[in-house]
């Protein structure tokens, strides 16, 4: 942790993430108004003392809506990544440990899945599953699986021939011991780094699906959906689209910066600073 905080990027990322997590935890409680309450007299207003960030096309308080959307958006990113990383890592570790033909077959299938651009793959799955937050989350997780499996596999392969693993083999340790006590703890670094950076992609793809009407459904306060709903009115009140848009950017940037700092901390040789 100290090494993460030693670079400006790491500090900026940590601060951003702290803010994002604080808002996700306490946002709904901090919100001054009910996020679904119509203030018919004050529609599409700019920031004022009464509505700190202004109001949307129904006169709903933008600050309250953004604060309430935070847990939805952040949980989506974390959930989709956790699922994708979990399944991907299991597949990758199996391929890496098994080697030989199993590895070859798994890798060819993954190559085929990776041959489709991520958003296209996600769109196909969402169309198959139908729109909605849960479906979108599953789709992003499936899309992340092949990439994560690759990272996990290469990480396992780089560890597998190290002396301490060979020593454990020579000692006659069981396969399970070698995998869980020797290989995995040493291979997990790159997986964690990749996962952190992917949370920001998950949040961006989730918001994009919300924007296209394939993710969260109205009247949800998911940020991508907020941008999409306010688009018709963006020239009358740009705040309606700018606020949720910047909220997405801030969250994604926090995970990006933190992930980069984490990578440098795990691998001081590959400095990006």
């Amino acid at each position: 942790m100290r090494r993460i905080l030693s670079s400006p990027n790491g500090i900026a990322g940590s601060v951003l993430l702290l803010i994002v997590f604080a808002i996700a935890l306490f946002g709904p409680w901090l919100a001054p108004y009910d996020p679904q309450l119509f203030h018919a007299q004050n529609r599409l207003e700019g920031p004022s003392l009464q509505h700190l960030l202004g109001t949307d096309q129904y006169g709903r308080d933008l600050l309250s809506r953004v604060l309430n959307g935070a847990p939805t958006t952040v949980l989506f990113g974390l959930g989709a990544t956790a699922l994708g990383v979990g399944v991907g890592s299991i597949i990758g570790v199996i391929a890496g440990v098994a080697g030989g033909r199993t590895d070859g077959v798994i890798m060819r299938i993954l190559d085929g899945m990776l041959a489709m651009p991520e958003l296209l793959f996600t769109l196909l799955i969402v169309t198959f599953l139908g729109g909605g937050t849960g479906q979108a989350l599953l789709a992003v997780a499936v899309t992340f699986t092949p990439g994560m499996a690759r990272v996990a596999r290469s990480s396992v392969l780089s560890v597998r021939t190290r002396e301490y693993v060979l020593a454990a083999v020579a000692r006659g340790e069981s396969r399970a011991w070698i995998v869980f006590r020797e290989v995995l703890p040493n291979a997990i670094g790159p997986i964690i780094v990749e996962a952190t950076i992917r949370v920001s992609f998950a949040i961006m793809i989730g918001a994009t699906l919300g924007f296209l009407g394939l993710g969260a459904q109205p009247p949800s306060t998911e940020w991508g959906l907020m941008v999409s709903e306010a688009r018709q009115f963006m020239f009358r009140n740009p705040w309606c689209v700018a606020i949720p848009g910047l909220a997405i950017a801030m969250t994604a940037m926090g995970f990006n910066l933190f992930g980069d700092a984490l990578r440098d901390a795990f691998d001081p040789k590959r400095s990006h600073g």
Partner: peptide
């Protein structure tokens, strides 16, 4: 470059339009 990577296309597009 950090701000650029964190903006999804639909946000950039919407802001440019505004």
């Amino acid at each position: 470059s950090y701000v650029g990577t964190a903006l999804p296309e639909f946000v950039t597009a919407t802001l440019l339009l505004v």
